[in-house]
């Protein structure tokens, strides 16, 4: 399943990257020769590519994570963990690290694309590294939410749907921020949006508050998952 998803993901990303390159080349052609060097390849292609990858992860992560707990609940294999000298946290972290490693593998299938940067004389690779870090951290947030959704039901499809709604919600906080007239509320919404923090990293900005947000967000969801597992047991 993970290989199929990785294959599909690589295919979609390759196609998106190709389209962005073609679009970029068309736009450059329309510019006078002396202005062409000012048209920013990094912003027009790579940052947009990160946005596309992030968008696709929104759909892929719930599918990758949907069976993490719901299948164990359906088949009764969760009781193997309950009957073993392993703690709930060990089970959660084991599954979570496996999932975010899968996520790293999934994202790594797109590494081939920025290699093209070498061909267009881009010298600063730092925004690529921070962009990929942002993508992976976003995946970590989506994975935590999706695993939590998976612990809510024995039905994998339902788990994926719940996960998708939760992930979408975490994405759309930024939209709520634009809709709110209250400055304080608007700032809170903006801070709670996963995408707001990702945008900074995608532009190459490493800000401490973004990392604090990612760590607290993931920890909060994993603690909620632990509470859910404990409640389920009794």
């Amino acid at each position: 399943m993970a290989y199929i998803i990785a294959g599909l993901f690589a295919l979609i990303m390759g196609w998106m990257f190709f389209n962005q390159l073609v679009y970029f080349a068309d736009n450059v052609q329309k510019l006078p020769l002396n202005m062409r060097h000012e048209y920013d390849f990094a912003n027009q292609v790579i940052v947009k590519l990160f946005g596309s990858i992030n968008f696709i992860l929104l759909f892929m992560t719930p599918i990758l994570a949907m069976k993490s707990f719901s299948e164990e609940l359906r088949d009764g294999t969760i009781e193997l963990y309950y009957s073993s000298p392993v703690s709930d946290l060990e089970v959660i972290f084991g599954k979570y690290f496996a999932l975010i490693t899968k996520g790293a593998f999934l994202i790594s299938t797109t590494f081939i694309l920025p290699i093209f940067l070498g061909k267009v004389n881009v010298s600063d690779y730092s925004f690529v590294i921070s962009g990929y870090l942002g993508l992976w951290l976003n995946f970590c947030c989506f994975a935590a939410l999706s695993m939590f959704a998976s612990s809510l039901t024995k039905n994998q499809v339902l788990a994926a749907i719940i996960a998708f709604v939760l992930v979408l919600f975490s994405w759309m906080f930024a939209m709520f921020s634009q809709m709110s007239d209250n400055y304080l509320l608007s700032e809170i919404y903006r801070y709670l949006s996963v995408n707001h923090h990702f945008e900074n990293l995608a532009k190459g900005k490493l800000i401490l508050s973004d990392f604090i947000f990612y760590i607290s967000f993931i920890s909060f969801i994993l603690v909620a998952l632990r509470v859910r597992m404990k409640a389920r047991r009794w």
């Binding site: 294999t77 193997l80 073993s84 000298p85």
Partner: peptide, 26 residues
């Protein structure tokens, strides 16, 4: 214990499964 349905990972072989459980039981 074995309660109700056996908790089996059906995609594993018998040996893989028993080894996995042995490791799980530390």
């Amino acid at each position: 214990f074995l309660l109700e349905e056996p908790p089996l990972y059906k995609d594993m072989t018998v040996l893989e499964y028993i080894r996995f459980v042995a490791k799980l039981r530390k």
